[in-house]
């Protein structure tokens, strides 16, 4: 198990190293940076959904908390981006503890609705609290990140830094999964009663993992703010939270690599679709970006109906079957030849 994970991280690192050379185009580099943000959030969300079996339909709200804390503290109070990011993390963690409290007493998926409600509230506040958040027109002039005097002012620099954080996030998550804590979380997902009978404090562990995933989301929000340098409530609506759930579920709930690939895949999907639409236009078929929602929903539904373990596990199982079939076929042919 562990070896597979290190191979996975190795592959990601290698891909990150060569990607800017291969892509070479600022626009696509930007797309990959947005993908990095989604991958980071989904890694955290997967710990919550796939490993502890708790669903959050409001993770966009934690991203918003990170992004707005960073934006407000850096532009209005002139704090350093790093301190602001830390404050965002603390705020998000605090809110997560608060959100998690009802789940301490209740079985099942109250968290889903509580987080959805919370996400809607955050969106309403972001629009309505004009004095703090700038309302619908948002906050401009967010400073760039600096790293040891290096200003992250080119897309290549940003790309390396952001993907570096994704790799670190993945590494931490993988470590956690293969530890006592990670096993406890998986046990909660398997059977809450049995986990409790073995001494797993299910209430506290659920809150802890919610906090952890909120921290991932908050960091990704801060990074978003410092990359686009302007934020408004638009990207933090409930639909984005649902999209994050879709990414994790499509890639594979029960596997961190599944969630990671799901996030990567669906982040790149709109680009793929715009390619497709150009191609379709040559046949006089008009594709509109309006259809994107429909396509996301369709993919999610198909995956949940036919590949509930997600694309990642599903494909690897398919490959295994194909290989074993080929071996059988090969054997059969060999015998035939004899």
């Amino acid at each position: 198990m562990k070896i597979k994970d290190y191979v996975g991280i190795g592959i990601v690192m290698a891909a990150v190293a060569v990607a800017p050379k291969l892509v070479g185009n600022e626009y696509y580099l930007g797309v990959l940076i947005f993908a990095a943000l989604n991958c980071l959030t989904c890694t955290g969300l997967c710990l919550l959904m796939g490993y502890a079996g708790q669903i959050s339909i409001g993770h966009g709200a934690f991203i918003a908390v990170g992004a707005y804390t960073s934006a407000v503290l850096t532009t209005k109070l002139g704090w350093s981006p790093w301190t602001a990011m830390g404050c965002g993390v603390i705020l998000a963690a605090g809110i997560a503890v608060f959100m998690g409290l009802p789940t301490m007493r209740l079985k099942g998926h109250y968290l889903a609705m509580a987080t959805l409600g919370f996400a809607s509230i955050i969106h309403i506040v972001a629009v309505a609290a004009v004095d703090v958040t700038g309302g619908p027109s948002g906050i401009t002039g967010i400073p760039r990140l600096q790293l040891f005097g290096f200003v992250l002012n080119s897309d290549t620099r940003n790309f390396y830094f952001y993907w570096g954080i994704v790799v670190a996030g993945l590494l931490l998550a993988v470590n956690l999964i293969h530890s006592r804590v990670g096993r406890g979380l998986q046990a909660i997902h398997g059977s809450e009663d049995a986990a409790a009978s073995l001494g797993v404090n299910i209430a506290v562990d659920k809150i802890k993992v919610l906090v952890l995933s909120a921290v991932y989301a908050s960091i990704s929000g801060s990074l978003y703010a410092h990359y686009v340098l302007f934020i408004d409530p638009g990207p933090f609506d409930v639909m984005h939270s649902v999209l994050l759930v879709t990414m994790v579920a499509v890639g594979g709930l029960h596997n961190i690599w599944g969630a990671f690939s799901g996030a990567l895949l669906l982040s790149l999907l709109p680009e793929g679709l715009s390619f497709l639409s150009e191609y379709l236009q040559t046949f006089d078929i008009r594709y509109r970006t309006d259809y994107d929602t429909l396509i996301y929903g369709g993919i999610l539904l198909l995956i949940m109906l036919f590949l509930p373990e997600g694309l990642f596990e599903g494909l690897s199982r398919l490959l295994k079957t194909v290989f074993s079939l080929r071996r059988k076929w090969g054997g059969g042919l060999a015998r035939h030849a004899e």
Binding site: T246, A249, L294, G298, L300, L305
Partner: peptide, 8 residues
């Protein structure tokens, strides 16, 4: 998640 998909 299926009902979420249907809603989308």
């Amino acid at each position: 998640i299926i009902t979420i998909a249907v809603s989308i």
